[in-house]
Design a protein around this nucleic acid. Structure first.
Lengths: 200, 200
DNA sequence: CTATAATCTTTACAGTGTCAAGATTGAGAG
DNA sequence: CTCTCAATCTTGACACTGTAAAGATTATAG
């Protein structure tokens, strides 16, 4: 890990991503500015432009890194419960929710960056597709075990992802009333949501 | 509708909300600035501060108005198919998706404004709760008709809302691959998603 | 009719993203 | 080893942003 104090930073690109994640966690998405990121990395305000075309590009890089870590967590859980499909499904969903709650603002940014920049940020696209393929594998294991209905696994994966993602989003935006939250823990709620698409 | 050209606008508050919605549709969420909104309403750049505490407050008002219109649409559909629960459910979901697609940026803003400002924007809270109660009524009708599993209607409503909302969000952020979209129309996809939680 | 409060304008300031020009330096060619 | 050049970083500038303070205008209540 180079950390000399010379004119050239050495690994500024990654340092900026890291600084961005930290600022995101501390000041939220509205507090994320290029200049603050540069400052935190100990570099002048327009140094980032040597590594990123614009602010969007930095955000895309942060998002990409986020998807990498998400995959790391999800695949670990998936491997751990590879022999118990239904548990695998629920624990993976729970890991997803936890990931979102660990750093809500980064999570939001991950899903508000790209739109149709598929051409501009190919790494982001491939990383997010890798995550979807993992979900799909989990769904197929559950179909084989009779836990989920048969049918096109990509569409069912979309359902499973959608139900969990939708729940997380509604939770993050405070749309889930206290009345509901008092009755059950978040963990129980997530499991209940998923069980809606699981066969008895 | 007063539209005189005097010093006092007459109905600036609503004019600002309207201008905001228009800018949102044209320039997207990143193009929404208080100054542009003021300009479009034909007023100086800090006139909005007579009606809104800050930019967040304007956004909250736009969101609140959005939820009002959403309720309008949803309740119309719900009334129309009141005697066919399963159709009522699917058409309501489809109306939700269409609402999001009509104006994606406004839809996003509606779900990215409040967080825990429950105290600061009570109208927003009550309006969004009104929408949830409507979903809940639809769910209860479907439970009574044996279309949905029995169980706490608030939790099942959360599932239904979550699955549709999650789908919309993933769609809006380009997370739904072309491969999936080529096989089915959006309408078919939405119906497929919902059928995951419906009994056969 | 007049005082007051609401509404709108003007002016000002600190932050922001971005660009252009220049300074510094690491790495390869000779 | 030295020279050169391209990559990297800094400085300075610009237009635009949100927001606060002070002043102008006017509707309306008393």
């Amino acid at each position: 890990m180079p950390k000399k104090k010379s004119y050239h930073h050495g690994d500024l690109k990654n340092a900026l991503i890291k600084a961005g994640v930290e600022i995101l966690a501390k000041d939220g998405v509205s507090g994320l500015s290029l200049r603050k990121v540069a400052g935190r990395a100990g570099v002048s305000h327009s140094a980032p432009y040597s590594h990123f075309a614009d602010k969007q590009a930095l955000i895309a890089a942060i998002s990409t890194e986020g998807f990498r870590q998400l995959y790391e967590r999800e695949s670990t859980v998936a491997d751990l419960y590879a022999d118990q499909p239904s548990k695998q499904l629920i624990e993976a969903a729970w890991a997803y929710v936890q990931f979102a709650m660990d750093d809500p603002d980064r999570f939001k940014v991950m899903f508000s960056a790209v739109l149709e920049k598929e051409k501009e940020y190919p790494e982001f696209v491939s990383e997010s597709q890798r995550n979807f393929q993992l979900v799909r594998r989990i769904i197929e294991a559950n179909q084989a075990a009779g836990v989920l209905r048969s049918g096109p696994s990509d569409l069912i994966a979309l359902s499973a992802w959608g139900i969990v993602h939708g729940f997380v989003m509604l939770w993050l935006e405070g749309q889930i009333s206290h009345a509901v939250l008092e009755k059950s823990s978040l963990r129980e709620l997530v499991e209940f949501q998923l069980r809606q698409i699981m066969l008895d």
